[in-house]
């Protein structure tokens, strides 16, 4: 019986269809050669090298924080897309839609997972940075990858910021108020920033309430519908797209700069 099953599996494995999907033929790798080929012949595994130094799998060394950050990002992407099905970014509907997400949808913990996942990702990203610093892994030739890492950290924080504005509750609207007023305080670019009043010809101000950094952010002089749409697009399209590009470069540079840092 078992032999027959094995034979059947082997036959399925040898079909044109399966062989066309898995470049290896889909068998479980048994010897060293096959184990190496698994990494080389699979697009997703291809992120990794084939062989790594032994300290790279020690949790005590890596803390697993970089990998977890990426994984949590994927979880956030999936749960985020699911939430988008039930969320309308308008002042009228946003709050109610978010409130309904727990009740009117099966598996009503998507928002919880998205929210707590975001908090968790911030923690893992910070700790990843801490680990990279403490092992001196930013030193040549990995300097630029550290710079990309800082950009990823910034993007993570911006994603969190734009994310908590979307439920359009008190936290959201006062977060926008404070955040956009900080933009208004930016030097030269904001109406309330140092130097902005110097940018004028005669009595015409170049930087005024209808044209400054705050105006770009909230698409108006007052917080309302337009601001919500703007942050929605930033949170769901612009920032995820940007962070994915930087992540790709980050991972690619890890490989190109010699893999995980190791003592010389």
């Amino acid at each position: 019986m078992l032999d027959k099953l094995k034979k059947l599996l082997e036959n399925i494995r040898q079909t044109q269809f399966v062989r066309s999907i898995f470049r290896m033929g889909g068998g479980f790798p048994r010897d060293v050669r096959q184990r190496m080929f698994v990494m080389l012949n699979n697009f997703f595994m291809h992120l990794h090298p084939v062989r790594i130094p032994k300290h790279a799998i020690k949790i005590k060394y890596t803390w697993c924080m970089g990998g977890l950050s990426f994984f949590i990002f994927l979880v956030l992407a999936v749960t985020g897309m699911l939430l988008m099905f039930y969320y309308r970014p308008t002042v009228e509907f946003a709050y109610g839609d978010v409130m309904d997400m727990n009740e009117q949808v099966p598996l009503g913990i998507m928002r919880e997972i998205h929210r707590w996942g975001a908090h968790l990702m911030i923690i893992t990203v910070w700790l990843h940075m801490f680990r990279v610093f403490m092992t001196g892994s930013y030193k040549p030739p990995r300097e630029f990858n550290w710079v990309i890492g800082v950009i990823l950290l910034l993007l993570t924080m911006l994603l969190s910021f734009t994310g908590y504005l979307l439920p359009w509750d008190q936290l959201a609207i006062w977060g926008i108020s404070v955040g956009s007023n900080m933009a208004a305080a930016s030097p030269f670019a904001g109406t309330e920033g140092p130097g902005a009043s110097l940018l004028k010809i005669g009595s015409i101000n170049f930087v005024h309430k209808g044209a400054d950094a705050r105006f770009v952010l909230i698409a108006g002089r007052f917080i309302g519908e337009a601001a919500l749409v703007r942050f929605y697009v930033l949170h769901c399209v612009v920032l995820p797209f940007t962070i994915m590009i930087f992540m790709a470069v980050h991972f690619w540079r890890v490989r190109k700069d010699g893999g995980i840092s190791k003592p010389l």
Partner: peptide
């Protein structure tokens, strides 16, 4: 493009 010409404000 980021600065709308018309604002729908009260």
């Amino acid at each position: 493009y980021l600065f709308p010409n018309v604002l729908f404000e009260p």
